[in-house]
Amino acid sequence: MHAWRTFVLRRLALLLFVIVSILTMMFFLFKLLPGDPTSVFVDSNFPDDMVQRQKALWGLDAPIWVQYLRYMGNMLTFDFGTSFFQMMPVRDIVVEKLLHTASMIVPAVIISVALGATLGAWLGWRRGTRREGAAVVTLLTLRSVPSFFAGIMVLMIFSYWLGWFPPGGMVSVGGAGDSFWETVLTIDFLHHLALPCLVLVSREITSPALLLRSTMLEVKGSDFLDVLRAKGLPERRIVVHATRNALLPLVTDVAVMMGFLFQGQVLLEIIFAWPGVGRELVTALNDLDYPVAQACFFVMALIILITNFIADILYSVIDPRVAYD
């Protein structure tokens, strides 16, 4: 137990180090970005002292290391400043967009992992049948379809031709509730969620399914399955044992998948007009809305780091053989 605690603490320290490194890199990257943030607010025809006053107001006249320390302090306390355009705290904007993205991704991941893992376990157990072959080919095809193409096809078929689902957005006009949960827990929301979720699932289901199939094949050769059979366990229980062993690499896979989905859904969010964090980032960069862009970058990086951290910890809990040193 002591070893485990040290392991967790060391992982935490490492996490903190990586966060600080990323923030530092972001600070200098944004300094290097073309375009002066003041130019958005101060017309170049204005007198020079107005520009200076604006810079002083934002602290841009301070030496760079002072700026860096202030920036670090602000970011680590999640104080992202005010958006240049929306004139509201960036934190509120990012939290809202993040929830929107999550409302699309989390259901898709849950469905993908549950269905994909079950399918993969079954495929591995039934290796060599004709159905298994057909399923593998289908999965590989689904995996190779780019999401913008799948998105447009799905929109064309189910929205434009069949008219079953709305073409975009999270809710119908006027359908938004007062809080996030009031918005999300409606039939209208699910109706809007169906298509983007379908596109996501069709792609994300392939990774757990193919992964579990191959780990299942490995586990199937294990000697302990013979002993379980000799113990008189029903087939169902033996499959559970095999699956439990085959599931281990999936934990890492799911964590990485989660992290990537949070940052990688720009295309889907644009196709389905989903007001998520990916679309917000693109808009912010186009508008030179630095505080929003910075916050989006930071939050995405943070999510990847945290999901990986959770995967590490979880892995050490479910696989007793993981050594903590």
């Binding site: 000697d223 302990f224 013979d226 002993v227 379980l228 439990r244 062993n245 281990l248 479910i318 053989r321």
Partner: peptide, 10 residues
Amino acid sequence: QSAMNGFDPV
């Protein structure tokens, strides 16, 4: 067989 891993590792 002792060379076998007769126990489920998890």
